[in-house]
Amino acid sequence: MFRAIKDLIETLKMELGKINVVDQELSISTNALDVEMPKVSVALAEEVMNVNVNEALYSPAELDVITTSFDGGNVKVHDTHSFSAITACVKNVEVGSDNVPCVLSVEPVKERVYTSNVMFHTGYAVKLFSIKFVSPEIRSGENIQELWKLTMKRAKFVEKEKVLSALERIFKSYSGDVKDLRFVGYFKNVPVGRAEKIIVLNEDLVVFLKRKGKNLKVDVVVVKSPEKLMIEVVR
């Protein structure tokens, strides 16, 4: 637009010759409208924050804590993927190993938080909240059944003579066709004195342990017949 006006004046100057034209910069003033951004008041009581602020603004996996700002009395929690941030006044910090805050009580500072084109006011409710983890209850669980299933792998190194001798005894005692027998493995130090039940699962020997029993361990050869599991002690 400026260009067009200047060109027009130059043309007139050339055509009229004697007209004195004051070379003047043209300016256009614009009264920009103050657009009020939508406001959402967020009370920073912990329960409100969990529902409104966190879910709206933050994805915890993408957040990081600027730990260096603890000393200054402020902690800033930043979402590195947007402009959103919370500033809170630290009331109490105890730093544990690796400078990790183990006790941190914070109070939100009154300020605005921007994210995208939505503005949030924080700090209307000045309520202290703590992020301290309470030590969990410790319980005894010796009765949990899963603890009493000992899974044993086959021994990788075998004492050949002893194993063959044990197999021979199994074959002699078996009344059916020995072709139906399948060698499972040689297992060392099986706690038979504490065994309530023994099964084969995925080539492993699973020993269901009794709570009490004799402290007796043996090396065994395990063979499976169509009818049952045959376990022979290696002598």
Binding site: V65, L104, I138, R139, E142, L147
Partner: peptide, 24 residues
């Protein structure tokens, strides 16, 4: 022999969203 003598466990801890944010 690998036989249990003691088993202690902690009650499960579920961090709040605020704790997740602050501890990062």
């Amino acid at each position: 022999n690998g036989i249990p003598q003691e088993f202690k466990y902690s009650e499960p801890v579920t961090p709040t969203k605020l704790q997740r944010i602050i501890y990062g």
